[in-house]
């Protein structure tokens, strides 16, 4: 990501990484301040909220958390990740969700996915449905997460592993959603049509 930062931001991020590598507990106060100290902004101007692509501050926060994880045992890491999420604003929470797949947490961070998917913040819904969710989230919750994307307008390109994890049950749910929209005289989102087409092969299995 360093090509996305100016020289000063890059140098500052490296300092922060060194700091949490030697003192992992410092992540508690360095993580929230990352955007102010390193830089912020979309990496793709067409995706300003970072639904599909990580924003600059997301990438810096993930790098910091990975560095801190090197010096923390599994239980301490799980506690710190939970605290960063609990006390984080939406930007910080999104970065924690994006980091999960890079951390050796087993199922310990599933509660965070549950929190993100219960809410209405599309930035968090999108970030929750990354590779960690593909590997760890129970299939019922994962399907409902995908359906929530269609309801809230999160582009499905933000969701990892649709082709591997999609199944006939998801197809049934999306088909029901599309039918309800048509009955109400409303448009069916293009993503729903695309997903039904992708999953049609599963229905035939």
């Amino acid at each position: 990501m360093t090509d996305l930062l100016d020289n000063e931001g890059c140098a500052r991020l490296n300092e922060l990484i060194d700091e949490v590598t030697s003192t992992p507990a410092r992540i508690a106060v360095l993580f929230p301040a990352v955007a102010r100290s390193v830089g912020r902004g979309p990496t793709d101007p067409a995706d300003p909220d970072g639904l599909v692509t990580s924003r600059v501050e997301d990438q810096a926060r993930v790098a910091l958390l990975r560095a801190a994880a090197q010096g923390l045992g599994r239980a301490d890491l799980a506690r710190e990740v939970a605290a960063l999420y609990r006390h984080g604003d939406a930007d910080e929470k999104r970065a924690v969700l994006r980091a999960l797949d890079h951390l050796d947490l087993g199922d310990d961070a599933l509660d965070l996915l549950g929190d993100a998917l219960r809410g209405n913040d599309i930035r968090l819904i999108a970030a929750a449905l990354g590779p960690y969710a593909v590997r760890r989230l129970d299939v019922h919750s994962w399907r409902h997460g995908v359906l929530k994307c269609l309801f809230t307008g999160v582009p499905l390109t933000a969701v990892s592993g649709i082709a591997e994890r999609g199944d006939a049950e998801l197809a049934r749910m999306v088909d029901g959603f599309a039918a309800e929209r048509r009955t109400a005289g409303r448009d069916v989102p293009a993503d729903a049509t695309w997903l039904l087409e992708l999953l049609s092969t599963y229905e035939e299995d």
Partner: peptide, 10 residues
């Protein structure tokens, strides 16, 4: 004990 996490924010 938790104040530092908030004092760090924008």
């Amino acid at each position: 004990d938790v104040l530092p996490r908030y004092l760090a924010k924008d």
